[in-house]
């Protein structure tokens, strides 16, 4: 993880040949994760706006991942049992699913971001 973060900090994926998304290479369609490397590079340099433009769901996704990681593995489950229950609930997870699928479709149909 650290090595990858270091590589992403040191090199700009736009200039350097980081591995492209296999899904994009094979199908010509962008996947929900396309732009993550470029966005992470921007984030590591503190360029929030550019990160958002490369992949707008990356920042909320990272925040959610951090929160879930805390709840799951760092005692958050006992501190905030109700929050943990909601975020493990079917409704919430279907919501996450819907956001990812809609974003996936929209970015290929409207070619934005």
């Amino acid at each position: 993880m650290g090595v990858l973060a270091g590589l992403l900090f040191a090199f700009n994926p736009v200039e350097r040949p980081f591995p492209p998304c296999i899904f994009y290479k094979l199908t010509g369609f962008q996947c929900p994760g396309c732009g993550t490397q470029r966005a992470l590079h921007c984030l590591l340099h503190g360029e929030w706006k550019d990160a958002f433009l490369y992949n707008p769901i990356l920042i909320p996704a990272l925040a959610l991942i951090a929160l879930l990681l805390y709840l799951d593995s760092f005692g958050g489950k006992r501190q905030f049992p109700k929050l943990h229950r909601i975020l493990s609930g079917s409704k919430f997870i279907w919501g996450v699913f819907a956001v990812i699928i809609l974003y996936w479709i929209a970015r290929n149909v409207y070619h934005f971001l």
Partner: peptide, 28 residues
């Protein structure tokens, strides 16, 4: 859930999508 979001958004493979679907079924 967080693991499946990681593989969907960061690993760049649609295999993470069924993982999210199964994650959604657990609580129900």
């Amino acid at each position: 859930l967080w693991q499946s979001i990681v593989v969907t958004i960061i690993c760049c493979l649609p295999l993470g999508i069924p993982a999210i679907v199964y994650a959604a079924q657990v609580e129900k």
